[in-house]
Design a protein around this nucleic acid. Sequence first.
DNA 1: TTGTAGGCGTTATCAA
DNA 2: TTGATAACGCCTACAA
Lengths: 363, 363
Amino acid sequence: MAAATPPPKPLRGNPPTLDDLARALGVHKSTVSRAMDPARRHLIGADLLQRVQAAAQQMGWRPNRAAAALATGRSRTVGVLLPDITNPVFPPILRGIEDALDAEGCFALLANTARREGGVVAAQMAVERMLAQRVEGFLIATAVRDDAWLEGLHKSGAHIVLVNRTNDAPDSRGRLPAVISDDMLGMRLAVDHLVGLGHTRIANLAGPADLSTGRARREGFLQALAAHGLAPAAVVDGAAFSIEAGDAAMSELLGRKTRSRRLPYGCTAVVAANDLLALGALQALQRAGVAVPQSLSLVGHNDMPLLAQISPPLTSVRIQHYEMGFRAARLLMESLRGVPGSASTVVLRPELVVRGSTAEAPS
Amino acid sequence: MAAATPPPKPLRGNPPTLDDLARALGVHKSTVSRAMDPARRHLIGADLLQRVQAAAQQMGWRPNRAAAALATGRSRTVGVLLPDITNPVFPPILRGIEDALDAEGCFALLANTARREGGVVAAQMAVERMLAQRVEGFLIATAVRDDAWLEGLHKSGAHIVLVNRTNDAPDSRGRLPAVISDDMLGMRLAVDHLVGLGHTRIANLAGPADLSTGRARREGFLQALAAHGLAPAAVVDGAAFSIEAGDAAMSELLGRKTRSRRLPYGCTAVVAANDLLALGALQALQRAGVAVPQSLSLVGHNDMPLLAQISPPLTSVRIQHYEMGFRAARLLMESLRGVPGSASTVVLRPELVVRGSTAEAPS
DNA sequence: TTGTAGGCGTTATCAA
DNA sequence: TTGATAACGCCTACAA
């Protein structure tokens, strides 16, 4: 055979292209292209295939996704919007998302929408940039419920899956696919646990009503109580899902306290809508000298890391964060592929993790 | 003029292209292209510019970065490698990275390299995929020190900035630009604080020696002690930067204890290389009935969230995580732009946050 | 089983 | 100041 194949063109500093490979092998680039595509490899002669792969390896060829994206319209990226990765709920969600995307050869483009400049605008700008990158779809975990831009994005035909939240469209037609935790159930687990411990005067430290989880958990609390024929001892609104808000809200609740001997704090147990709120509440309680759980039981929500390390260890409702992200990403991938039977909403089961912050109701 | 410009081609479902715009305006696409580029806008007639922008707005044009990437070779993405976003040190770092990238119109492609399948391979695969996406550079926060793939990547000409770690190349020529915390100083702050409280028998709960922070902090501890003319009471190696490892290491240390009356635990203070190790140590201490800080003082490192909520609140060395990510990303951007005077290594100052886990040495 | 031709949406380099 | 033309690297018919 050709004793001396022509040297494969003075190497540039850039990675070689399919065409470079093709020339080096004396075949056409479309042949090489086929050899590189698992789905069409079978059209290639076994020996040629060998040579192509060897050459690719040796010359250091790498696919150029930018070019492929231009040609096919598939960028292999999806946009992920969340308020702030610094909030401990989101890392496991993101991790799940990336593991699922990774399995499909996709990357996430991330945006933290809770910027100093103000949430909505940041989200819109992020979406704009992601659209420019031609993301194939969106995973949205931003919290605000009434965002019009979401509606607009949806109507523009973008593929969207919501994570850890839902949108409340008036018609069910406008309801977007979502992966959420069963917040109703979560609150029921918390309430049932407390009732089982003999508590009947239970208060709720609720989250902001304009966040979907905030609203769902407040409602779940009320329903769970009602199922036991109980009325809420109190419902205080936290201004945010934060330690400070929890502290403030709990302080307010303590201020309200009915000074009865049997019920010095107006209740014997508090269910917080979120662990941060619970931690803030704990802070306020300790400052006020209220013994947890002896005088007051406390339950959080999310089971974020390190809850077992604090004192008392916080009882909390554990959400399947990782799974939530993973399933959401898979759902999106399926909807992109046009899989027909793909579920439109997935509800994950939370579980109660009982620790030291809850105990029998004081007699 | 042309009373009836030909209808601008039956709208496809896809976003319009520059050429679509150009046709609608009766100009050439390269003109429109120029109008869209801030750097070349000035070449365009003022009125035309107006019309182009209006049309773009009205027809809903968006830049197609995939096409631009192909034409220019600039993808506007950078690869970010970190062990696991679920580890609380990384979210703020990532946040900093993204804020900095965002300002330049870039996105991060993220990979968690601490997969179940084993770290190194995962990192290599991630790099491979990122290279395919034609990322412009890499921000690397993976921890292992001896990774050959890093060296390979570097030699292949990739732009790299290390975050929260360094590589120890034999020659300083092979040393990569990095943004790190001053671990020596951090340990000195911790040791000085303890010495100031009267401690002279201080032990180190060190991290794995194959991680760059693990080694630097161990060394920093020894140097800081030496500066006071003290010898270490003990140095125990944690198997990992985790609570479990901290628990195990502390248990071991307690096992070693010299049963002297004055020094029941062989030391009066422990400096951990990391907060998780410290938390594990705390766990072991509480189990063993050792009072912190009355019998033993404990210092962590990183000042991760919620340290103030545990009991006792943990004294810790605070690292500038966000800043670290931000600076690293900026450094990378500069090196891409070929900025000449760009620093090659940035060392950030940690500070000590004193809380309840440290107190005067027991007399 | 392999080759040919054209196009994906931008940018860059000349001309005009 | 604007237009024409040719890449950029890959994919997809269709033809051979």
